[in-house]
Design a protein around this nucleic acid. Structure first.
Length: 211
DNA sequence: CGAGTCAATTAGGATC
DNA sequence: GATCCTAATTGACTCG
C-alpha cells in the first residue's frame, strides 16, 4: 500500500510502526467507499484492533491553511452545493464528505455561538427590566403613601384637573392607572429622567434578539 | 424515495 | 487526568 505524502501536514500515525498515513489523499479514481476501504486496509492490523475486532477511530486534524480556506468559504456561504463541495474538497485535498462534515459542524458552532449571545443579551435585558420594575414599585409605594385624599390628576393634554378618580395598579403591566368616569387613563409615574433612560434602553434593544 | 440538513452524540487529540 | 475543541457518526426529518 503506497500513500504519497502531501505538502499538507495532515497525517495520521500508526502506532505499531512509525509510518504515516496521508489522510488527505484523494481516491484515484474511485468513490469514498473505495477510499475508506483502502484506508482501513492500512489501519487494520492486530495491534490496532480491540478484543472485539473494532478498529479505533483515527482523527483527522485540518491544517491551518485548510481551516483558513474553509472559514473563508463559510463566510461567503454557509452551505455548499455539490459542485462547490467537490471543488473545495479538491482544492483542500480532502474528501467531499469531509468538507460537508466540516460545514455541518461549523453551522452548528455558529448557531451555538449565536444562541449564547442571545442568552447573554436576554439575561441583561431581564436584569434591566427587573431593576426597572423594582424602581417603579417603589414609586408606587411612595405615591400611595402620599395619597391622602382623592388624587388630582392633571391632564397631560389640557393641563386641566381631571375628574376625581381612583388610583390603582394595573394587574397586567403594574403601571399606575386612574379609573375615572371617562374610563381608564395611564398616568406616567416615572420622572422625565427615568423616562428617557427607559426609552433609550428600549431603542437600543437590538431587533435580532427578538428572533 | 433519495438527497440534503440538522441535532445529538461519540471519541481522538491538544492543552492545561 | 480533566477539560476543551472538533472530526465523524447516527438517526430523524424535510423537500423535490
Amino acid at each position: 500500500m503506497a500513500f504519497s505524502s502531501s505538502n499538507l501536514d495532515l497525517t495520521i500515525s500508526v502506532p505499531s510502526s512509525a509510518r504515516d498515513l496521508d489522510m488527505n489523499r484523494l481516491p484515484s479514481p474511485g468513490s469514498d467507499d473505495e477510499w475508506i476501504a483502502s484506508t482501513m486496509e492500512v489501519v487494520v492490523d492486530e495491534e490496532n484492533t480491540t478484543n472485539d475486532g473494532v478498529v479505533p477511530r483515527k482523527k483527522l486534524r485540518l491544517s491551518k491553511e485548510q481551516s483558513r480556506l474553509l472559514e473563508e468559504s463559510f463566510r461567503q456561504n454557509h452551505t455548499l452545493n455539490p459542485r462547490q463541495k467537490e471543488a473545495l474538497a479538491s482544492q483542500l485535498k480532502l474528501r467531499p464528505r469531509q468538507v460537508e462534515v466540516w460545514f455541518q459542524n461549523r453551522r452548528a458552532r455558529s448557531k451555538l455561538k449565536q444562541t449564547e449571545m442571545e442568552f447573554q443579551y436576554l439575561k441583561r435585558w431581564f436584569e434591566f427590566l427587573t431593576k426597572q420594575n423594582q424602581e417603579l414599585q417603589s414609586e408606587v409605594e411612595e405615591l400611595r403613601a402620599l395619597q391622602v385624599g382623592p388624587p388630582t390628576v392633571i391632564s397631560p393634554h389640557s393641563r386641566e384637573p381631571l375628574p376625581a378618580s381612583t388610583l390603582t395598579t394595573c394587574p397586567r403591566c403594574e403601571r399606575v392607572t386612574t379609573i375615572s368616569s371617562r374610563g381608564a387613563s395611564l398616568i406616567n409615574t416615572t420622572t422625565s429622567t427615568n423616562n428617557t433612560s427607559t426609552t433609550s434602553a428600549l431603542q437600543s434593544r437590538p431587533s435580532s434578539a427578538a428572533g
